[in-house]
Simulated assay, not measured.
Amino acid sequence: MSGEMSFFGLFLQASFLVQLVMLLLLATSVVSWAFIFQRSKALNHARLEVRKFEDKFWSGGDLNRLFQEISARQHVSGMASLFVAGFKEFARLRKSGSASPQAVMDGTYRAMRVSLSREVDALESNLPFLATAGSISPYIGLFGTVWGIMNAFIALGEVQQATLAMVAPGIAEALIATAMGLFAAIPAVIAYNRFSHQVEKLENSYGNFMEEFSSILHRQSHSSDSATRE
């Protein structure tokens, strides 16, 4: 392309509104990519933490020792957070001595449900922005294109003899807005769908752990209650 028909040259020749649309789409793309890298790193870390915790939890070690080890950390997240919330509430209700085994389990499960909700909210952080960027960026680009083409035809109508060379730059700069809209939208949509699937899988893993851990605590609660009665 010649210097006049380069991307930067067409950007400078575009109307103020089309320039504003291009800058908005460029900023959206930059922010989207930043969130994509950040979410990818966070979800990879979450999956790694799940594997590490499950290895420790199902190794057959003492749950009290595991609870103390995890509670000593400065930051607890993921499946470990559910374990700490559930075990802490279970121990507190058992120590009170006034709650029935069913009440103990109900309180324990509620505590884990609250922790699960917080963890899922953290995993879904920034995903709404990607969904919004993926859905509206093409329309923003299309708006810039329509506006640019409209201006090009208005200018074309003011001359007596129209040539392709006169209208081509205006149409080209307008079409760039659509291209930028697609450039911002496509990665955002792909990333949103991929991350949503990963979050769903992690949420299922957390839910399965809650059920399994509840079953373990339920057996402990009833066995302890039976031993006390005897």
Rank of each mutant, 00 (worst) to 15 (best):
V104M: 03
R65N: 14
H75P: 03
A227Y: 14
S15P: 05
Q198T: 11
L156Q: 00
R110H: 14
S137Q: 09
G86W: 00
F153E: 04
N193E: 08
Q102A: 13
M180E: 07
K56L: 11
L17G: 06
V189G: 10
G97V: 06
W147A: 02
Q198V: 10
V189M: 15
P128Q: 13
I36C: 04
M79Q: 13
M112D: 00
Q68A: 12
S71W: 04
F8V: 07
S81E: 15
L130M: 08
S137P: 06
G107E: 01
T163L: 14
V159P: 13
A184M: 05
G3F: 10
L82S: 02
K41P: 08
S214K: 02
L63Y: 09
A80M: 12
K201G: 15
G9T: 00
Q13C: 11
L127V: 10
L17R: 13
A155T: 13
R194Q: 07
N126R: 06
F35N: 01
L123P: 01
S226C: 15
R113N: 15
R39H: 10
M180L: 09
S77K: 07
F213T: 00
T132A: 11
L12V: 14
I190P: 08
R194E: 04
A162N: 12
G9V: 00
N204G: 08
Q102N: 12
Q19Y: 02
S214R: 01
V159G: 11
L130Y: 03
Q13F: 10
S115F: 15
L142A: 05
A188L: 04
S100R: 04
L130R: 01
S32L: 10
L82E: 06
V76K: 11
G207W: 13
T178L: 07
L17T: 12
Q19T: 09
Q13I: 09
G148L: 00
F16D: 13
L93G: 00
F87E: 02
Y192M: 06
P128F: 11
